[in-house]
Design a binder for these strands. Structure first.
Lengths: 198, 198
DNA sequence: TTTGCATGCAAGTGCTTACTTACATTATGG
DNA sequence: CCATAATGTAAGTAAGCACTTGCATGCAAA
């Protein structure tokens, strides 16, 4: 087996187990077993459990989703577009749910993780903010509310899905209605819950 | 020192430390020190670290906030009322942030915790749902969207505050604008972000 | 074939930590 | 003031775990 493959296997196993049980409760023996390698091999590659842990973070933090990078031009149909953006971002973030949980659980003991946790959410909020800014200039979104607040409000719904899925296995509040819920949320977000006078 | 006081001190210390570092990473010695009690006393009261942990959960799960129990009659001013309800619920939940974090971190190893995690959120969502139902009959809220979806959408904003505060120390997204943000969010939630034609 | 490198295997070391035991000390209520 | 219960102190035990060492094995390139 090539060296790089072994390393990858160990990193994968470490990510999965540490995100499940926490760093302290995860043994190097268990990681090695999950990676189908000898425990000694683990130490030969990473020296210590802590360095392995930090290597996991380094590797995962590298992979940004390009997904969120590019900006989106508002088309006019806010509800439809936000439904798609929301579903898209949600899927992207859920792909990193394990890593998110791992960081959040260990940030107390490793404060240097802190900045990584916010990175993806901040990028998502940033993209949404720009989207709303453009929609304002197009005259389809209100001018009297800060775009960042809009972005954070919208993002909060996605964040709830991420957190519940990462920590509890699935969206315990929406259960199996998550997909349908996104459209209904977008509807509320765009038009509000208040009854229109017209 | 009376027996009950000692027990309480140990339970308090255990809650604080375990919610910080996780069960496995928290030592009985550290808990005893924080509680200003001898380590042996801890074992005399709780037999084992695990039983102490479960005792913490039992105690905390007992204290429901009556806060959320009673229903609220919509007054007509949705934005103002939801701002107040949101701030109120948020404060109530933040008072249990440590316990929330503890449960969420250990639920993988102790699945029996699961039901406790959802209890408070479900109660909050339930109350909001009833609130929107009543507001519908009063004709101030749209009838074409499910009240539960509305409740979950609104709750998601509170949930984000809870999670970020519990795990990261404060609301990293809204930073120091949390209070002001609640009103702006309520505004968006009630009236939507779309520009009105009228 | 040979050399070197990655891995496996077996055994062990030293430290931490949950938990115990035996005894001394303090506090409290009758 | 005495009896009893609660707590402190000191020391130790047993187990788990991170990490090491020495050696054998297989594999791939020269």
């Amino acid at each position: 087996m090539a060296k790089t493959d072994t390393k990858t296997q160990i990193l994968d196993a470490a990510l999965e187990l540490i995100s499940q049980d926490g760093l302290k409760a995860t043994t190097t023996k268990a990681i090695a077993e999950k990676a189908s390698v000898n425990e000694v091999t683990l130490f030969r590659h990473f020296e210590s459990k802590e360095k392995l842990f930090l290597a996991v973070i380094d590797r995962e933090a590298m992979v940004r989703f390009e997904i969120i990078q590019h900006e989106i031009e508002p088309s006019g149909d806010l509800v439809n577009e936000l439904t798609m953006i929301g579903s898209f971002m949600s899927r992207g973030m859920l792909g990193k749910a394990n890593f998110f949980k791992l960081m959040v659980m260990e940030v107390n003991r490793y404060p240097e993780i802190f900045d990584h946790i916010g990175a993806v959410p901040m990028a998502a909020i940033d993209m949404l903010e720009k989207y709303f800014d453009k929609a304002k200039t197009m005259g389809i979104v209100r001018n009297d509310v800060d775009s960042e607040i809009m972005a954070i409000a919208f993002f909060s719904y996605l964040f709830r899905i991420l957190v519940t899925t990462a920590f509890l296995g699935d969206d315990i509040f929406m259960k199996n209605r998550t997909d349908d819920g996104m459209r209904q949320f977008a509807e509320i977000f765009v038009n509000g819950v208040a009854k229109r006078s017209d």
